[in-house]
Amino acid sequence: MTCLPEITPGQKKLGLVIDLDTCVGCQACATNCKEWNASGHSGPLPDSKPYSAGAEGVWFNRVHSYEAGEGEQGRTVNFPRSCLHCETPDCVTVCPTGASYKRIEDGIVLVDHDLCIGCGLCAWACPYGAREMDEDEGVMKKCTLCIDRIYNINIPEAQRQPACVLTCPTSARHFGDLGDPESKVSKLVAERGGQPLMPELGYKPVNSYLPPRNRSSASAQPEEAAPTPMDIKNPLLRWMDKVLTR
């Protein structure tokens, strides 16, 4: 059913918190996502012309890189973009077949690939570009929040996390229940002032982005070490310095 489930207070909202301060743009999350999902719930994830010019394929996670601010304030920010598992996503309600749905129990937005007719309307309805068509199978694919990992009793408990979160070398990605104000991720969002993407569209993204931290101002930057001849303790070296600077 493509009608959205009613949202009750305290409802579970699984999602990601992405730290734009620590993300180094290494693409590990995107790569591990592709690796896991190529054979999981959504597999296969097609690639066309993988070994020649024009190689492309379906990815659930794309890591952009931006420059924000001018001059001294300017800085580079790496920016991973994937499905935000929105609370009120039109990608679900526009679907004519019932293939797209939002789970009541944890808020994950999924596609049933057996029902999808590949009309592409959900991709048009997603403001964030989180849905990419599998043009081999003619069905829509998207991030599942690694539904086949997070509930998977066959893997050690510590690994029941989305592939992108597990692999991130700087721990810039966090997974948890954003509907529970006491959860680690909710506290992180509260502490660091996590932000939704394009809130003006009204989709209420569950995923949250932690802003880059304030950088110390330019004047507080460490100065380059500039030793004077008097700093040279060894008399022999002091003499050499004198001779050489003559």
Partner: peptide, 23 residues
């Protein structure tokens, strides 16, 4: 607003996430 980075200043793309086409 798409990147949440407006608080720093104007935002422009530095590197694209992929160099070829996609859907």
């Amino acid at each position: 607003s798409a990147t949440t980075l407006g608080f720093i200043g104007k935002v422009r793309q530095l590197d694209p996430p992929h160099t070829e086409q996609n859907y």
